[in-house]
């Protein structure tokens, strides 16, 4: 698929197949098209050309498939006057009949803050709400955009644990992240985007093998520089 914003071509012919039971990390420099790609999958951004298929069916101009996806935005902003309880209730209302997995709500002790206004919450707490919402309905696919960016280390750990747990259940998890240690911790495969095109899409083990590096960050840096060490 391809996407341009005005003169800026963000995605140029990205074509990839992602299969379930894996945690795939999408990495790349700023502006490489990571967020755009995940937004395309979610239908928030419509590609200029190309198609996105979910379980063999095109998702363009559809919405029902999204009941299988949990999304955690980079910065979750919510209506200021709504309470946490209402936000959660609302999403539940929308996804009626979906199985509920409120493990994160419990772990993040969100219930204690149910009556706080969204506008009064700190960025970290909002992220916790976002994370909780993403996992709430036990979706088949999880798309997490910089999931740990605003979280405290403790909360980040909880989230990582949750990601691994869900992977074991056979789900597909897409994470965009800049933090290589984190990627290394949870991901199986790395999809690297540079200037809107796929530079490589390999398992972590393969990357390390190819570059002869033990640390992923160095390995990736090497790969991006065309296989030569820094």
């Amino acid at each position: 698929m391809s996407k341009t914003y005005g003169k800026l071509q963000v995605l140029r012919g990205v074509s990839v197949e992602l299969t379930k039971g894996k945690v795939i990390s999408i990495i790349g420099p700023n502006g490489a098209g990571k967020t755009t790609m995940s937004k395309c999958i979610l239908g928030m951004v419509l590609p200029d050309s190309g198609d996105i298929k979910f379980k063999g069916e095109s998702v363009l101009n559809r919405h029902a498939y999204r009941s299988q996806i949990g999304y955690m935005p980079q910065i979750g902003r919510y209506p200021e006057n709504m309470k946490i309880r209402q936000v959660i209730e609302m999403v539940r209302d929308i996804r009626k009949n979906a199985p509920i997995d409120d493990e994160l709500i419990g772990l993040y002790r969100l219930e204690e803050m149910y009556d706080k206004r969204m506008g009064a919450l700190s960025g970290g707490t909002k992220q916790k709400v976002s994370a909780a919402l993403a996992f709430l309905f036990d979706p088949q696919v999880l798309i997490l955009d910089e999931p740990t960016a605003g979280l405290d280390p403790f909360a980040a750990e909880i989230l990582k644990g949750k990601i691994l747990k869900e992977k074991k259940k056979g789900k597909l998890v897409l994470i965009t992240s800049h933090v290589m240690s984190e990627v290394e911790e949870v991901a199986d495969e790395v999809l690297c985007l540079v200037d809107g095109a796929i530079m490589f899409y390999e398992t972590i083990a393969d990357i390390k093998n190819q570059t002869q590096e033990t640390r992923l960050s160095r390995a990736v840096a090497k790969m991006m520089n065309g296989g030569t060490a820094l």
Partner: peptide, 16 residues
């Protein structure tokens, strides 16, 4: 002001 809220909703299974 509701942009992000709509973003949140768009990621949910609802028609735009």
């Amino acid at each position: 002001n509701s942009y992000e809220f709509m973003e949140l909703l768009v990621s949910q299974p609802i028609r735009r």
